[in-house]
């Protein structure tokens, strides 16, 4: 049953081939998430670090009264950290288990992509990244990596980073 606002992951995987994507930049990589999974995007929010949390969890932010966990995409993808002084942007995604904010470098536009441009992720893509990518869209001027949101938010199987 499709209701506005939330899509089960099964639905979204069959829809990932064409549709609208919310895009963002992380260390030069251009990612996209199905627009229906993205609640909102915002600029840097003051963060409260959580000591002892897994390294990918940058901290907690106050989103209009709701406390949201913020996950740093650079760390999640095994990429080098942001330079000193550079701040991250928030891409707030909605999942069945709640709301999580992904910290990214830059927010991009919403783009349309067709199923014709969809391909499996290239072999030469870093495995740490390839694990979290469902496929790519070959756009006019660049490659759009379609992020597997569920996998990204699942920490116990991530990239050698253990929860605890």
């Amino acid at each position: 049953m499709l209701t506005t606002g939330t899509i089960s992951s099964l639905e979204s995987s069959s829809r990932s081939l064409s549709g609208q994507y919310s895009t963002f930049d992380v260390a030069g990589f251009y990612f996209g998430i199905d627009v229906l999974q993205v609640q909102e995007v915002l600029r840097y929010q003051r963060m409260t670090p959580v000591p002892l949390a897994p390294a990918v969890i940058e901290g907690l932010i106050n989103l209009r009264g709701q406390i949201v966990t913020a996950m740093d995409m650079r760390q999640r993808l095994g990429l080098p950290p942001r330079a000193d002084g550079e701040t991250a942007m928030n891409v707030v995604v909605r999942t069945e288990e709640g709301v999580v904010s992904l910290l990214v470098d830059e927010i991009g536009d919403v783009v349309e992509a067709e199923s014709s441009s969809f391909e499996r992720p290239p072999e030469n893509l870093d495995p740490a990244i390839r694990n979290l990518v469902r496929g790519i869209h070959k756009l006019k001027d660049r490659l759009l990596l379609v992020l597997d949101t569920d996998q990204t938010l699942k920490l116990d199987t991530g990239n050698g980073q253990s929860l605890n």
Binding site: L60, I67, E97
Partner: peptide
């Protein structure tokens, strides 16, 4: 706390 942090037993939540 969200599911990623629930396992940390030195925190009872956040405010």
């Amino acid at each position: 706390l969200g599911k990623h942090l629930k396992g940390l037993n030195c925190y009872a939540g956040a405010t």
